[in-house]
Protein backbone atom coordinates (compact mmCIF):
# COMPACT_ATOMS: atom_id res chain seq x y z
CA UNK A 1 0.00 0.00 0.00
CA UNK A 2 1.31 3.46 -0.84
CA UNK A 3 1.74 5.90 1.96
CA UNK A 4 -1.17 8.21 2.72
CA UNK A 5 -0.64 11.81 1.58
CA UNK A 6 -2.06 13.27 4.76
CA UNK A 7 -2.41 11.32 7.94
CA UNK A 8 -3.46 12.35 11.42
CA UNK A 9 -2.63 10.13 14.35
CA UNK A 10 -4.64 10.37 17.53
CA UNK A 11 -5.11 14.15 17.37
CA UNK A 12 -6.46 15.65 20.57
CA UNK A 13 -7.32 19.30 21.10
CA UNK A 14 -9.15 20.86 24.02
CA UNK A 15 -10.44 24.38 24.51
CA UNK A 16 -11.08 24.50 28.23
CA UNK A 17 -13.84 22.02 28.91
CA UNK A 18 -14.58 21.54 25.22
CA UNK A 19 -12.98 18.57 23.53
CA UNK A 20 -12.79 19.80 19.95
CA UNK A 21 -10.72 16.87 18.73
CA UNK A 22 -10.81 13.55 20.42
CA UNK A 23 -8.32 11.01 19.26
CA UNK A 24 -8.82 11.73 15.56
CA UNK A 25 -6.99 9.39 13.23
CA UNK A 26 -7.74 9.61 9.56
CA UNK A 27 -5.86 9.57 6.31
CA UNK A 28 -6.06 10.91 2.79
CA UNK A 29 -4.89 8.47 0.17
CA UNK A 30 -3.57 9.03 -3.32
CA UNK A 31 -6.27 9.73 -5.88
CA UNK A 32 -9.23 9.94 -3.55
CA UNK A 33 -11.67 12.48 -2.28
CA UNK A 34 -12.13 11.99 1.41
CA UNK A 35 -15.03 13.96 2.79
CA UNK A 36 -15.35 14.95 6.42
CA UNK A 37 -18.90 15.64 7.45
CA UNK A 38 -20.49 16.41 10.75
CA UNK A 39 -22.97 18.77 12.39
CA UNK A 40 -22.04 22.34 13.31
CA UNK A 41 -19.62 22.43 16.21
CA UNK A 42 -18.40 18.91 15.56
CA UNK A 43 -14.82 20.16 15.33
CA UNK A 44 -14.33 20.18 11.57
CA UNK A 45 -12.66 23.59 11.46
CA UNK A 46 -10.44 22.70 14.40
CA UNK A 47 -9.38 19.58 12.56
CA UNK A 48 -8.58 21.52 9.38
CA UNK A 49 -6.57 24.06 11.36
CA UNK A 50 -4.49 21.34 12.93
CA UNK A 51 -3.85 19.74 9.56
CA UNK A 52 -2.88 23.05 7.94
CA UNK A 53 -0.82 24.27 10.87
CA UNK A 54 -2.88 27.12 12.29
CA UNK A 55 -3.50 25.21 15.52
CA UNK A 56 -1.19 22.90 17.42
CA UNK A 57 -2.77 19.71 18.72
CA UNK A 58 -2.43 18.97 22.45
CA UNK A 59 -1.27 15.51 21.49
CA UNK A 60 -1.06 13.34 18.43
CA UNK A 61 0.64 14.05 15.15
CA UNK A 62 0.04 15.24 11.61
CA UNK A 63 2.00 13.58 8.83
CA UNK A 64 2.41 14.79 5.29
CA UNK A 65 3.67 12.16 2.86
CA UNK A 66 5.12 10.16 5.69
CA UNK A 67 6.87 13.11 7.35
CA UNK A 68 5.90 14.34 10.77
CA UNK A 69 4.95 18.00 10.22
CA UNK A 70 3.24 18.58 13.58
CA UNK A 71 5.70 21.29 14.59
CA UNK A 72 5.61 23.12 11.24
CA UNK A 73 3.83 26.42 10.73
CA UNK A 74 1.19 27.14 8.10
CA UNK A 75 3.62 28.56 5.54
CA UNK A 76 5.98 25.59 5.80
CA UNK A 77 3.14 23.11 5.32
CA UNK A 78 1.88 25.09 2.34
CA UNK A 79 5.33 24.91 0.77
CA UNK A 80 5.43 21.19 1.53
CA UNK A 81 2.29 20.66 -0.51
CA UNK A 82 -0.94 21.53 1.27
CA UNK A 83 -3.20 23.63 -0.93
CA UNK A 84 -6.08 24.90 1.13
CA UNK A 85 -9.15 27.02 0.71
CA UNK A 86 -10.96 28.88 3.45
CA UNK A 87 -14.53 28.63 4.64
CA UNK A 88 -14.75 32.42 4.46
CA UNK A 89 -12.84 33.57 1.40
CA UNK A 90 -9.40 34.91 2.31
CA UNK A 91 -8.27 36.96 -0.66
CA UNK A 92 -6.35 40.15 -1.26
CA UNK A 93 -9.49 42.10 -2.17
CA UNK A 94 -7.74 45.24 -3.48
CA UNK A 95 -5.61 43.18 -5.84
CA UNK A 96 -6.68 41.79 -9.17
CA UNK A 97 -7.72 38.21 -9.72
CA UNK A 98 -4.47 37.55 -11.57
CA UNK A 99 -2.39 39.09 -8.79
CA UNK A 100 -4.10 36.82 -6.29
CA UNK A 101 -3.30 33.79 -8.40
CA UNK A 102 0.27 35.02 -8.96
CA UNK A 103 0.75 35.17 -5.23
CA UNK A 104 0.25 31.43 -5.07
CA UNK A 105 2.63 30.88 -7.98
CA UNK A 106 5.31 32.94 -6.24
CA UNK A 107 4.76 31.32 -2.87
CA UNK A 108 4.99 27.85 -4.36
CA UNK A 109 8.03 28.62 -6.50
CA UNK A 110 10.00 29.30 -3.32
CA UNK A 111 11.90 31.99 -5.22
CA UNK A 112 13.27 35.06 -3.53
CA UNK A 113 10.72 37.79 -3.88
CA UNK A 114 12.27 40.52 -6.00
CA UNK A 115 11.98 44.21 -5.14
CA UNK A 116 12.11 45.73 -8.61
CA UNK A 117 10.88 43.71 -11.57
CA UNK A 118 7.07 43.78 -11.87
CA UNK A 119 5.50 40.54 -10.76
CA UNK A 120 3.49 40.36 -13.98
CA UNK A 121 6.68 40.13 -16.01
CA UNK A 122 7.67 36.78 -14.56
CA UNK A 123 6.48 34.93 -17.64
CA UNK A 124 6.52 31.36 -16.32
CA UNK A 125 4.69 32.18 -13.11
CA UNK A 126 2.22 34.38 -14.91
CA UNK A 127 1.31 31.59 -17.30
CA UNK A 128 1.00 29.20 -14.38
CA UNK A 129 -1.38 31.61 -12.69
CA UNK A 130 -3.38 32.15 -15.89
CA UNK A 131 -3.61 28.40 -16.46
CA UNK A 132 -5.04 27.96 -12.97
CA UNK A 133 -7.56 30.74 -13.55
CA UNK A 134 -8.51 29.12 -16.82
CA UNK A 135 -9.14 25.81 -15.05
CA UNK A 136 -11.73 27.42 -12.79
CA UNK A 137 -13.19 29.59 -15.54
CA UNK A 138 -11.92 32.95 -14.31
CA UNK A 139 -9.41 33.72 -17.07
CA UNK A 140 -11.78 36.35 -18.43
CA UNK A 141 -11.78 38.25 -15.15
CA UNK A 142 -8.02 38.18 -14.62
CA UNK A 143 -7.75 41.98 -14.59
CA UNK A 144 -10.73 42.62 -12.29
CA UNK A 145 -10.17 43.43 -8.61
CA UNK A 146 -11.01 40.45 -6.41
CA UNK A 147 -13.49 42.67 -4.55
CA UNK A 148 -15.66 42.84 -7.67
CA UNK A 149 -16.09 39.08 -7.94
CA UNK A 150 -19.33 37.42 -6.97
CA UNK A 151 -19.36 35.04 -4.03
CA UNK A 152 -19.21 32.00 -6.30
CA UNK A 153 -16.34 33.45 -8.29
CA UNK A 154 -14.40 34.10 -5.10
CA UNK A 155 -14.83 30.46 -4.13
CA UNK A 156 -13.42 29.45 -7.50
CA UNK A 157 -10.53 31.93 -7.17
CA UNK A 158 -9.65 30.28 -3.85
CA UNK A 159 -9.42 26.96 -5.65
CA UNK A 160 -7.36 28.52 -8.44
CA UNK A 161 -4.85 29.86 -5.91
CA UNK A 162 -4.59 26.41 -4.36
CA UNK A 163 -4.01 25.05 -7.87
CA UNK A 164 -1.10 27.41 -8.53
CA UNK A 165 0.68 25.79 -5.60
CA UNK A 166 0.68 22.46 -7.50
CA UNK A 167 -0.15 20.88 -4.14
CA UNK A 168 0.28 17.29 -3.04
CA UNK A 169 -3.11 17.49 -1.37
CA UNK A 170 -6.06 19.86 -1.41
CA UNK A 171 -7.70 20.71 1.88
CA UNK A 172 -10.98 22.40 1.08
CA UNK A 173 -13.02 23.95 3.86
CA UNK A 174 -16.64 24.08 2.71
CA UNK A 175 -15.97 25.17 -0.87
CA UNK A 176 -19.71 25.19 -1.58
CA UNK A 177 -20.75 27.25 1.42
CA UNK A 178 -23.29 29.86 0.44
CA UNK A 179 -23.59 28.75 -3.18
CA UNK A 180 -26.82 28.13 -5.06
CA UNK A 181 -27.49 24.88 -6.88
CA UNK A 182 -25.85 26.14 -10.07
CA UNK A 183 -22.67 27.16 -8.26
CA UNK A 184 -22.60 23.92 -6.32
CA UNK A 185 -22.82 21.98 -9.56
CA UNK A 186 -19.91 23.92 -11.04
CA UNK A 187 -17.70 23.32 -8.04
CA UNK A 188 -18.69 19.66 -7.94
CA UNK A 189 -17.59 19.22 -11.55
CA UNK A 190 -14.40 21.12 -10.86
CA UNK A 191 -13.47 19.01 -7.84
CA UNK A 192 -14.24 15.87 -9.79
CA UNK A 193 -11.57 16.91 -12.31
CA UNK A 194 -9.11 18.00 -9.64
CA UNK A 195 -8.91 14.62 -7.96
CA UNK A 196 -6.65 13.38 -10.74
CA UNK A 197 -4.15 16.11 -9.80
CA UNK A 198 -4.05 15.63 -6.07
CA UNK A 199 -6.27 13.96 -3.49
CA UNK A 200 -8.83 16.16 -1.76
CA UNK A 201 -9.73 16.35 1.89
CA UNK A 202 -13.16 17.90 1.65
CA UNK A 203 -15.11 19.38 4.52
CA UNK A 204 -18.58 20.05 3.26
CA UNK A 205 -22.16 20.45 4.38
CA UNK A 206 -23.84 19.82 1.07
CA UNK A 207 -24.71 16.13 1.27
CA UNK A 208 -25.59 15.73 -2.40
CA UNK A 209 -22.17 17.03 -3.37
CA UNK A 210 -20.45 14.84 -0.79
CA UNK A 211 -22.25 11.72 -1.92
CA UNK A 212 -21.54 12.54 -5.55
CA UNK A 213 -17.84 13.19 -5.04
CA UNK A 214 -16.46 11.31 -2.09
CA UNK A 215 -14.67 7.99 -2.28
CA UNK A 216 -14.65 7.78 1.47
CA UNK A 217 -16.46 9.68 4.17
CA UNK A 218 -15.55 10.28 7.80
CA UNK A 219 -18.25 11.42 10.18
CA UNK A 220 -17.21 13.74 12.95
CA UNK A 221 -19.48 14.19 15.96
CA UNK A 222 -18.45 15.95 19.17
CA UNK A 223 -14.82 15.94 18.13
CA UNK A 224 -14.78 12.23 17.47
CA UNK A 225 -14.75 10.23 14.25
CA UNK A 226 -17.72 7.91 14.72
CA UNK A 227 -17.39 6.24 11.33
CA UNK A 228 -15.16 6.13 8.29
CA UNK A 229 -15.99 4.23 5.15
CA UNK A 230 -17.18 4.19 1.58
CA UNK A 231 -20.28 6.19 0.69
CA UNK A 232 -22.65 3.20 0.87
CA UNK A 233 -21.35 2.10 4.26
CA UNK A 234 -21.86 5.55 5.68
CA UNK A 235 -25.34 5.81 4.24
CA UNK A 236 -26.19 2.47 5.83
CA UNK A 237 -24.54 3.14 9.18
CA UNK A 238 -27.24 3.37 11.82
CA UNK A 239 -25.15 5.43 14.22
CA UNK A 240 -24.43 8.01 11.55
CA UNK A 241 -28.08 8.22 10.60
CA UNK A 242 -29.05 8.82 14.16
CA UNK A 243 -26.35 11.38 14.81
CA UNK A 244 -26.39 13.33 11.66
CA UNK A 245 -28.14 12.31 8.51
CA UNK A 246 -31.57 11.86 9.96
CA UNK A 247 -33.67 8.90 8.98
CA UNK A 248 -34.70 10.31 5.65
CA UNK A 249 -31.20 9.96 4.18
Amino acid sequence: MTEPVIETRALCKRFGALEASRDISLDLRVGEIHAVIGPNGAGKSTLISQICGGLQPDSGEVRLMGRDVTGWDVAARARAGIGRTFQVSALAMEDTVLQNALLGAFGASGRRLGLFRPALRYRDLRSRALAALDRVGLAGQAAAPAAELSHGERRRLEIAIALTLAPRAFVLDEPMAGLGSEGTKEITNLLNELRSEAPILLVEHDMDAVFALADRISVLVYGQVIATGAVEEIRANAEVRAAYLGDSA
Binding site: A78, G110, F116
Partner: peptide, 26 residues
Protein backbone atom coordinates in the same frame (compact mmCIF):
# COMPACT_ATOMS: atom_id res chain seq x y z
CA UNK B 1 8.52 49.56 -8.67
CA UNK B 2 8.37 47.93 -5.25
CA UNK B 3 4.57 48.08 -5.18
CA UNK B 4 4.23 45.88 -8.27
CA UNK B 5 7.24 43.66 -7.70
CA UNK B 6 6.71 40.21 -6.16
CA UNK B 7 7.79 41.42 -2.73
CA UNK B 8 5.33 44.32 -2.77
CA UNK B 9 2.58 42.03 -3.98
CA UNK B 10 3.23 39.60 -1.15
CA UNK B 11 3.49 42.38 1.44
CA UNK B 12 0.21 43.91 0.29
CA UNK B 13 -1.49 40.53 0.38
CA UNK B 14 -0.17 39.93 3.90
CA UNK B 15 -1.71 43.25 4.93
CA UNK B 16 -5.08 42.43 3.39
CA UNK B 17 -5.24 38.80 4.43
CA UNK B 18 -2.44 37.27 6.50
CA UNK B 19 -4.20 33.90 6.29
CA UNK B 20 -4.00 33.99 2.52
CA UNK B 21 -0.30 34.83 2.53
CA UNK B 22 0.48 31.99 4.90
CA UNK B 23 -1.65 29.54 2.96
CA UNK B 24 0.53 30.07 -0.11
CA UNK B 25 3.70 29.54 1.90
CA UNK B 26 4.64 33.15 2.68
Amino acid sequence: AFKHAPFGLALNAARQSPDRAQAVGL
